[in-house]
Design a binder for these strands. Structure first.
Length: 264
DNA sequence: ATGGTTGACGTTCAA
């Protein structure tokens, strides 16, 4: 069972890329970020033609998240961080039934996050990022209690450590790499979540995002800021994890490329 | 040289 995450940076523009990638990679579940679409504009019919059900929570111009799945959703989705007042559409949680099983204990909880970018360390948006992450932590604590089979994935807008940065000196204490952001991510992992990529790859130089500017992708100037976190119960079933750079090679790509995990 | 690019109800903002 393959579960992936992709910040598409406008699903309106990237729908053909997504359709192609669904056929090439055949994921079972994909979490999308930055759809930038109101719910009435979501292309659920086009995705249904490829065998995917959709749930989504979007807004015009900015943000927007969605989950698409070949397996049925078994619950109503959650579209906001409980108790955290926020007009920005950045979270979506749903439960899917395991392949070939109706057993609720086998179901998998998926939490899709589009973490606040934060603009610059010390800015107002940076403070919002840290507050937002603190609220997510309390929410995930409760999600973990209710769902042993938990996957938390998305655009975290945080590179976990210097192996995840093409030039750590240049990025030292900069946005996406600062100590407060990394400590906030550590707070999520300390709930009992594991960075699936690091279960299978210890080395640096693997990235999921490259700035559009300065031909960063061609120069290898990337960061690994898109993550798939798995709970302890799913850690044992995590047989592979990776990053598929093929969509980033295409014409008019998203600045992010899909990251994925395979569960036995 | 504080650089440049993409997307969106674009003449600016967010990433």
């Amino acid at each position: 069972m393959k579960i992936a995450s992709w910040n598409v940076n406008s699903l309106n523009v990237r729908l053909p890329h997504l359709q192609q990638w669904l056929q090439d990679f055949a994921p079972d579940v994909v979490a999308l970020q930055e759809t930038k679409l109101e719910d009435s504009k979501f292309p659920d019919a086009a995705l249904a033609e490829l065998g995917y059900r959709s749930v989504f929570c979007g807004q015009k111009t900015y943000n927007g998240v969605a989950l698409i799945s070949r397996l049925p959703f078994t619950s109503e989705c959650v579209t906001a961080i409980p108790g955290f007042d926020d007009p920005q559409k950045r979270v979506l949680a749903a439960t899917i039934s395991a392949p070939g099983s109706q057993d609720p204990a086998q179901a998998i909880r998926i939490v899709d996050l589009y973490v606040v970018n934060g603009e610059a360390v010390g800015s107002e948006k940076f403070e919002y990022k840290l507050r937002w992450l603190a609220a997510v932590r309390e929410w995930l604590r409760e999600e973990m209690r209710q769902h042993p089979n938990l996957v938390v994935l998305g655009d975290f807008n945080i590179a976990p450590d210097d192996r995840d940065v093409h030039d750590p000196k240049r990025w030292r204490e900069k946005i996406l790499c600062s100590t407060p952001e990394r400590e906030s991510l550590r707070g999520l992992l300390d709930l009992g979540l594991h960075d699936s990529f690091r279960l299978h790859n210890e080395d640096g130089g693997h990235f999921s995002w490259w700035d559009y500017r300065l031909a960063a992708f061609q120069r290898g100037w990337g960061l690994r800021i898109d993550l798939v976190l798995v709970s302890e119960a799913l850690r044992a079933r995590c047989v592979a994890a990776g990053i598929d750079t093929a969509p980033r090679e295409r014409e008019r790509p998203s600045d992010h490329t899909p990251v994925w995990v395979e569960l036995a």
